[in-house]
C-alpha cells in the first residue's frame, strides 16, 4: 500500500511508550512527534505498520533552548534512514534540513528520496525550511518532500526545483508518485573530503609563503 505521511505535529505528542503508540495506527503511517522511550523523551519520526512501530528516527539536532532543554537528542551515530518495503527514505525533522550532514548521511546509507517533517507554523520560517530542503535535494540528486502543518508542503524534483506546493493554511491530502533515485552526485562524493583538501592546501600555501619569506630575508642579510 501507499505510505501515509503526516507532519511533525503538535497534535501528536505521544507522552507514552511506543508499545501504546502502535495501537493508534493500522496503516502505513509516517508521523513525527515527541515520544517517550523508557525515561527519555525524544522528538522522533516513526513508521507505523499494522499497529507496530517498524522504524524510528530520533532527532539529532534539537532546536537550542526550546527543545534541548527538555528533550533527549538522538545519537549522532544512528542512521536517519527508514526502510519501507524495498524503499529506503532519508528523514529529517524540522530545521534539521539546514544541516548538510543529514542528507549526506542518508544518501550514503542508501536513501532513494528525502523526507522532511516540520511543525513550523510561521510563513517566513517554513519558506526558509523549504529553501534548505531544496538545497539538500539538489546536492544529493534526490527528490525531497517537505511536509508542514500549515503550508508549503511540497515536492522537489531531483535537482531541487519545487514541482508543486500546497497553499498556505489549506487542509489537503494529496496522492503522489515519488520518483526514487540511486547513485551519488559529485557533491555527495567530495563534500566529506573537500574540507580536508582545503585545509591541506591552506597549510601548504602558508608553509610555502613562510619558506619564501625566510629565503628572501636570508638573501637580504647576505647582500647587506
Amino acid at each position: 500500500g501507499a505510505l501515509n505521511v503526516l507532519p511533525e505535529s503538535s497534535l501528536f505528542n505521544y507522552d507514552f511508550d511506543t508499545d501504546h503508540l502502535g495501537l493508534l495506527a493500522h496503516d502505513n503511517l509516517l508521523i513525527g512527534g515527541t515520544i517517550r522511550s523508557q525515561s527519555l523523551v525524544y522528538n522522533s519520526v516513526v513508521l507505523l505498520q499494522k499497529g507496530r512501530v517498524t522504524a524510528r528516527y530520533n532527532k539529532i539536532f534539537l532546536v537550542p533552548i526550546e527543545e534541548d532543554a527538555r528533550l533527549q537528542a538522538g545519537n549522532e551515530r544512528q542512521t536517519n534512514t527508514l526502510r519501507f518495503g524495498d524503499v529506503i527514505l532519508g528523514v529529517g525533522i524540522c530545521y534539521e534540513s539546514s544541516f548538510e550532514r543529514i542528507s549526506l548521511k542518508a544518501v550514503h546509507n542508501g536513501a532513494q528520496a528525502l523526507l522532511f517533517l516540520s511543525n513550523t507554523q510561521s510563513p517566513p520560517a517554513t519558506a526558509l525550511q523549504l529553501r534548505s530542503v531544496q538545497v539538500r535535494s539538489a546536492e544529493t540528486g534526490r527528490v525531497a518532500l517537505f511536509v508542514g502543518m500549515a503550508g508549503n508542503t511540497s515536492m522537489t524534483d531531483a535537482k531541487g526545483k519545487v514541482v508543486w506546493r500546497m497553499p498556505w493554511a489549506s487542509s489537503e491530502r494529496r496522492a503522489i508518485s515519488v520518483p526514487l533515485y540511486s547513485g551519488l552526485t559529485n557533491a555527495v562524493h567530495f563534500s566529506a573530503q573537500l574540507s580536508y583538501i582545503l585545509v591541506a592546501v591552506t597549510c601548504a600555501t602558508l608553509v610555502s609563503l613562510l619558506w619564501k619569506g625566510l629565503h628572501r630575508k636570508a638573501e637580504r642579510d647576505h647582500q647587506g
Binding site: A2, V147, A150, S170, S171, R174, S177
Partner: peptide
C-alpha cells in the same frame, strides 16, 4: 543518479495555523 522506480505516498497537510 539513476531513476529506480516510484513510491506511492499520501501527503497530509493539516492546515493548522496556531
Amino acid at each position: 543518479p539513476r531513476l529506480e522506480g516510484y513510491l506511492e505516498v499520501n501527503l497530509v497537510q493539516p492546515g493548522i495555523v496556531g
